[in-house]
């Protein structure tokens, strides 16, 4: 099939003067090239990224000595009440952080979009909003250790509460939850802001002006003109933030280590604890498999709303 042209497609009489892609011969050769180039590299990476899943399944159904033990580890993983406790705490964390981040980010974006006209100030806000996002999570933990720590934290100093009865932000149950969630809000509200602000720039100014001529209030302008443009972005942000909450680890590890008790022992910290503090890798593998399956299901839902190839 590639008899005479070998790899000098342009020398082929039919290709001269024509766009290569449109000749059938060249096209089929190019399609072969797609696989020749893609398969070795993509295949390797795909295997390397899939091995952990297969290995986690194997680890979960075998004992330390290598014998097959069936679903025992899954039974122990699902029978552990601390798992449900960690899911519940993760849910509370998300329920505090995500609405504030999304509504706050959206609110600030609308505020800046409507009232700040200067491009220099807009650019300055853009850079400022990027700062929390690009700070390594570990460093964010350190930053807020300095804010919330008892005796040395600056918050209690500012509140004038330095005595023996000062609020223990990191070691009393409801406060530790609020403290860790507040860090999430500090770091990710600017992210929502940036996405929403970028989204607002795509709203055609003619529709906004037409609405204003018709006497639309600020609310109806948002509800009927801007919101439709922002809806896909709101979904995207929500999905990314949910995925991020499931992986929350670094800043909480630095701030509370999961305590007090199990107050801030969120899902990732719980799995870490089972696997590496209790060295129960069997149960941890079962949990890893369950989480990977759950996130894959979640991802198929995400794909339904966000077609992977958005052109």
């Amino acid at each position: 099939m590639s008899g005479n042209g070998v790899n000098a497609a342009p020398a082929h009489p039919f290709a001269i003067g024509a766009r290569i892609r449109t000749t059938w011969m060249a096209r089929s050769r190019q399609e072969q090239l797609v696989y020749k180039l893609l398969l070795p590299v993509f295949g390797t990476v795909f295997v390397l990224a899939t091995i952990p899943f297969i290995l986690a399944v194997i680890q979960a159904v075998t004992s330390d000595s290598g014998g097959f033990i069936g679903l025992e580890n899954f039974g122990r993983a699902l029978g552990n009440p601390l798992l449900y406790e960690s899911i519940k705490q993760t849910g509370i964390y998300a329920a505090i952080a995500l609405p504030i981040e999304i509504l706050g980010g959206l609110g600030i974006a609308l505020l800046v979009h409507r009232t700040v006209r200067s491009n220099i100030i807009r650019a300055a806000i853009y850079i400022a909003a990027m700062i929390p996002i690009v700070i390594p999570q570990i460093a964010v933990g350190v930053v807020f250790r300095l804010v919330y720590a008892a005796d040395y934290g600056i918050l209690n100093v500012l509140l004038g509460q330095t005595g023996p009865h000062q609020p223990l932000w990191l070691s009393s149950p409801p406060l530790a939850m609020i403290a860790t969630a507040s860090v999430d809000i500090w770091q990710w509200t600017p992210f929502v802001y940036l996405v929403m602000f970028a989204g607002l720039q795509t709203v055609p100014s003619e529709s906004v002006e037409a609405a204003q001529v018709d006497g639309a209030t600020t609310w109806t302008q948002f509800r009927h003109i801007e919101l439709p443009y922002l809806r896909p972005l709101l979904l995207l942000v929500l999905f990314f933030r949910i995925a991020d909450v499931i992986r929350v680890f670094d800043h909480v590890y630095v701030l509370t280590g999961g305590g007090p008790g199990t107050t801030t022992q969120f899902l990732s910290l719980y799995i870490y604890r089972i696997g590496f503090k209790f060295s129960d890798l069997g149960q941890a593998s079962a949990l890893a498999v369950l989480v990977m399956v759950a996130m894959t299901l979640f991802y198929t839902i995400v794909l339904r709303f966000l077609p992977a190839d958005r052109g």
Binding site: P52, F53, A243, L267, Y299
Partner: peptide, 20 residues
């Protein structure tokens, strides 16, 4: 979409088999 799916895997789940 495969590439994007990796973004949704929590590192803690992946690190347990990688550790082994």
């Amino acid at each position: 979409s495969w590439a994007l799916s990796l973004r949704f895997l929590p590192p803690v789940a992946v690190v347990i088999p990688y550790f082994a």
